[in-house]
Each structure stands twice: as structure tokens, then as C-alpha cells.
Amino acid sequence: MTMAVTLKDIAQRADVSLATVSRVLNYDKTLSVSEQTRKRVFTIAGELRYSKRKRQHIKALMRKNIAVIQWYSKIQEHDDLYYLAIRKGIEHQAQVCGFTTTSIFQNNLDQVGDDIDAIVAVGKFSPVQVQQLSRLSSQLVFVDDDHFAQGFSSVVTDFTFATNRVVDYFWRRGIRDIGMIYGKEWSTDQQVEIPNQRQQSFEQALQRHHAYHAEYVLAGDYTSQSGYLMMKRAIEMLGDRLPHAFFIANDPMAAGALKALQQADIAVPQRVKLFSFNNTTLAEYVYPEISSVNVETELMGKTAIDLLVSRFQDDRQAAQRIELGTTLVERESTK
């Protein structure tokens, strides 16, 4: 018996995503791909004898309702553009695939309707919350939280390599005293303190250089005000021993830290250099502009939807863990 050809078969042969194959075969004129790619998809579909009736079936299959569960509140999301960008990536790719999305904030699971076909969970979740989510839908993908070991598909960012690159960036420039300001967080049910991979990687990287100093590391809560207060504390506590460079865990905290340095008449980047994480638009809206690790936040959201498309094609598919790389964006705060 001949196995039915799927979009996945075509995508693998054409070396493109499932979403691209679906949009090409459905003559989506808004899709931005080369004519060569379009021809390759149609050619492979013909070679595999992928029928129009099958395409119509897949298109109908793609009419799904997706709950996007954000662990942040609306206010928190707008204060930290990192999670907003992830959600925008999810919603854009869902629209491309013909999905309907419902945004639910602050992990309010009571708002999850009975008509939901899948869940994309954005943020950090305790083991209890993970089990609650899995009972609401068997089609579950986590973004920015790694639950692959528990059998759930996860889309995450490479924190370790990115942090090592920042430390190496300063080290190559002869800076040996490097501090860090990071945030502490808890799951919304207050059951689990979220491990900070950036802080852990930073400590390990500097220990390899025998240059880690605990007094150079301060913990806040990821807000701009917290970054301001932590840098102000470092200035008062360390005086002339203030590190010549700081790695800061997100852009809002970096903006707050910059403000504290400027108020103390400490020149950036001449006396203290700052390197942030996330590379949201905020990093460019301050003076001097802040160097930052660029995280592909929108791609994280899009990838989560692509994983769901794949799972809808094959209910037996195993969980997948996708880790996206980062790049360093150098700006005036480190030059």
C-alpha cells in the first residue's frame, strides 16, 4: 500500500519549512520567496504525485484555534519588549498558517476555552503548571522555557554561548574586572525560582579566567528601576573598585544602569562599558546606544507555530527541542 504524501515530505525534499510549502501550494501571493523556490516546491509536489484534493485536506486541517499563554501580564509585557516580540512572532506565523490565536496573560488558565486545539506557552512555568497545561491540550509547545526532558516540544535561546561571547568580548579588550546585573524571577504560582542561565554562564566563564568576584554581581528584578538601583548600589559600595565593564541581563535593566552611571558622572563607555541582552528597540533609544546580544525573539514565536504545524501533520511525532543562536550587536556603550 502506497503511503500518502504529506507536506512534510515535500518540505524535506525542497529544504524549506512546512509553512512555506503550504503557502506555495495554496498560491499565497503575499509569500516572499524566490520564483526558483516556488518552482522547486511545485516540481517536487508533482514528482511525489501530491494531489490537489490532499492540499485541500491539509488546508482544512490547518484551521486550528491556538491559545497563546503568556506568563507576563499585559503591563509587564509592554515594559519588557522581549516577550511582546515573541508573541508577535507567534501571531504572525499563526495568521500565515490559517490559525486563530487567543492571547491569555499572566498564565490565567481559567480563560482557556474548550475549543482550543493547541497551546503555545510563553515564559517560565513550574512543574505543576506544566502538568496543568498538558491536561488542557496534548498539543503543547513551550517558548523560552525548556521542558524537553519532560516530553514537551520547546523553543529556547542559547544563553551559554552568548554569555561566553560577551565575556570574551571584554577579555580580548584587556578588561579583567567585569560585573553583572541580572534579574531574579519566580513562576506565577510562586512555586519555583527561575534559574538564571545568563548569571550561571557568566560565573562559569569568569571562573575559567580566575576572575569571578561575587561582589561585582548584583540581582534585581529585570525592570529599568531595578537596573538603576543595582548600579547605584554598586557605585556606592565599590567606589574606585567599580568594574570597568558590566554585562546586564536585559535592555530595561541596562537603560536603568546607564541612568545611574550618568547621574554619578561616570562616563560610558570611557570609564564603564555596558553590554546588554535581548537587543530590543530600547537599546537604541538611549544615549549612548547600548551594545546588546541579539535574540531572534520573533523567530522563536514563528518556530513554535511551525512545530505545531508539524505535529498536526503527524500526531505521533516526538517532542523536539530547538535552540536558536544569537549575535552580538556592538554599539556606543562598548566602543
Rank of each mutant, 00 (worst) to 15 (best):
N65I: 02
Q93C: 14
T281H: 00
G256C: 01
I104T: 03
D315R: 06
S187C: 12
I235V: 14
Q320M: 10
D9K: 11
A219I: 00
I10F: 10
F312R: 04
F277S: 06
I66G: 09
S126T: 00
Y27D: 15
L328V: 03
P252N: 06
S187K: 00
G183C: 03
K259N: 08
L307T: 01
S51W: 05
T223F: 04
I235C: 07
D15E: 15
A4L: 15
Q139F: 01
F105D: 07
H213G: 00
R172W: 00
A14K: 09
V128K: 10
A234F: 09
E298K: 13
S153F: 10
Q313S: 04
D117W: 14
Y169T: 00
E193M: 06
L328F: 08
S73C: 11
G239R: 12
Q56S: 12
F247A: 05
T160H: 13
N294L: 10
D144M: 08
Q225G: 09
K54P: 07
A45N: 04
A304C: 13
K124V: 00
F99A: 10
R165E: 14
Q111D: 12
G325F: 04
H57L: 14
V268H: 07
G89F: 02
L229D: 06
R13C: 12
R316D: 11
S22I: 15
V5E: 12
A245K: 05
I266H: 12
D158F: 02
K259D: 08
S187P: 02
V33R: 13
A319F: 01
V130D: 06
V156N: 12
P252H: 05
R40I: 01
A211H: 09
Q190P: 00
F202T: 06
S224M: 08
T102F: 14
S17E: 13
K184P: 01
G123V: 05
R53T: 15
E298Y: 04
V167G: 08
Q191I: 01
I90H: 11
W186I: 00
Q207I: 00
Q12I: 15
F161C: 08
Q197A: 03
D80E: 10
I104V: 15
E91L: 13
I104M: 13
L206K: 10
V166R: 06
V155T: 11
P127V: 01
A254I: 06
E215Y: 02
K74M: 04
